[in-house]
Design a protein around this nucleic acid. Structure first.
Lengths: 123, 123
DNA sequence: CGGAATCCCATGAGATACTG
DNA sequence: CAGTATCTCATGGGATTCCG
């Protein structure tokens, strides 16, 4: 699941690293959210996220599936169709994302003062 | 602060991205924690984190300083000495880290069943 | 000591083409 | 449609050296 480096580090940090590795990539959350929003098929997801290439999407979907955040189902014969669905487990991420969001907003205020406070909290 | 790509994406996600960019790197949290633990000087921090090179540490410290998570003070003339200290603002990250930790532990259980549940929650 | 500069390689990721 | 394969290039980051 994770690359096996720096095992030595503060062991309490390991679960934090796991989480960051799982949701921290450039695309992971975008893809997950796209699926949460109802996009189910490969091309559908791909089209919903600008700049995302098939290669990367393919890899990211595998990662998400390995981590049981989505399920992958092959539907029928020809042409092949697959369906990606979010798992119940993926819902447990919402709280984490909420905190990340929260801190991001808090941090922006801290850094920039009070402009651009127009962003919804819903994920 | 962030690379200016994919502005188009779900705007509620932007603060999340900010947060992830700030703490998400390979070293950021390790360095921050090292400083929290009391390491103050460049070499001191470097030595406390295996495999960390001066170049990377130098860059990461700048990032952390830009984001007002640490302060940098030059102490005296020769040889030069600097002091890095955590800011109050950095403390607001603890909740986020706690949630990341929490989910990581939860996730490990989900994936692996119940082994290796020996990690303290303190960060 | 605290870094900056340089060199170099591994990886990440975009574009395109191709297959079942 | 759902991916895989290949090629290529940018970047991240490791090792080492050097300077004030």
């Amino acid at each position: 699941m994770r690359k096996k480096e720096h095992k030595e580090c503060t062991s309490a940090l390991l679960p934090v690293r796991d989480t960051l590795d799982i949701i921290g990539g450039k695309w992971k959350l975008l893809i997950l959210i796209s699926i949460w929003e109802g996009n189910k098929h490969f091309r559908e997801i791909e089209r919903s996220i600008p700049k995302l290439s098939t290669k990367v999407l393919s890899k990211e979907l595998k990662d998400l599936e390995e981590n049981q955040l989505i399920t992958r189902t092959v539907i029928n014969g020809f042409p092949v169709r697959t369906k990606y669905m979010p798992t119940e487990h993926s819902k447990t991420l919402e709280k984490v994302i909420f905190e990340l969001h929260n801190w991001g907003v808090h941090h922006r205020k801290k850094i920039f003062g009070n402009k651009s406070s127009n962003s919804s909290v819903s994920v």
